[in-house]
């Protein structure tokens, strides 16, 4: 698969730790975790449940804050931003695709896609044009007026992807986008993401259990092995 990635670090997770309290217990999800992602990469993060794959996505997307460490995206340290600035940053830079698509049931496909554009200075006509274009890109033009309940699972996920790219966010964060789909639909979605990465230069970070994902991504991170490898390096550094 072709890649539009550059070797310039675009997203950097530097010594990230993340823990949370569960009753009296402190649960450590990540400890001194490092990751560098280049612009234009399509990364598939795989691994068993409970390793903190989704947490990584939430941290990169500014939905959650690390306990310690720094997250830099395009030279901007996002973990120091205020909630208000972070919200705005997210709306300008990040597109989310969730496993359960989370489309609004009362809005048709076009209105669902148009929703993030309400956060921009575009007028109604411009918003509609952008939404139309995004739907065309994901091959859903003929379903623009359909409500989510009138679409198949794969079609719903395509609309969710259109919503994620409509405001021209550079980064797409996908949390199990094929988790609820059959094999055929899942492959279609993966191919679509690969196209967005290859032809439109989107940086895509995808958490998945889908074994086929590696065929579409430019880099696959098996999180368990990656963490072990990092621990070994850290230990080596400490010992020496």
């Amino acid at each position: 698969m072709n890649s539009t990635s550059t070797n310039k670090p675009y997203i950097t997770l530097d010594k990230i730790s993340k823990s949370y309290s569960k009753g009296k217990k402190q649960v450590v999800v990540h400890d001194n975790f490092n990751l560098t992602i280049n612009r234009g990469e399509f990364i598939a993060i795989m691994g068993p449940s409970g390793l903190g794959k989704s947490t990584l996505l939430h941290l990169i997307g500014g939905l959650d804050q690390p306990t310690s460490g720094n997250i830099t995206v395009d030279n901007e340290q996002i973990n120091n931003l205020s909630e208000r600035k972070l919200t705005q940053w997210r709306s300008e830079n990040i597109g989310f695709v969730f496993q359960s698509h989370h489309l609004l049931p009362v809005l048709n496909a076009k209105s669902n896609v148009e929703l993030p554009l309400v956060l921009t200075p575009l007028n109604k006509k411009q918003r509609q044009q952008h939404a139309k274009l995004a739907l065309k890109l994901v091959g859903m033009s003929d379903r623009a007026q359909h409500l989510p309940k009138e679409l198949s699972g794969g079609q719903e996920q395509r609309v969710a992807i259109a919503r994620a790219i409509v405001s021209d966010a550079n980064i797409l964060l996908c949390d199990e986008p094929t988790g609820n789909l059959d094999r055929g639909s899942a492959n279609e979605i993966l191919a679509l993401l690969a196209t967005l990465n290859k032809d439109f230069g989107k940086t895509i970070i995808m958490v998945t259990h889908d074994l086929n994902a590696a065929d579409f991504a430019t880099r696959t991170i098996h999180l368990e092995a990656y963490i072990n490898q990092q621990s070994a390096i850290n230990n080596e550094v400490t010992t020496s």
Partner: peptide, 12 residues
């Protein structure tokens, strides 16, 4: 989930 999605999208 709907509200969280709005927030994730960037609604204030």
């Amino acid at each position: 989930k709907e509200i969280a999605t709005h927030k994730a999208i960037g609604f204030s």
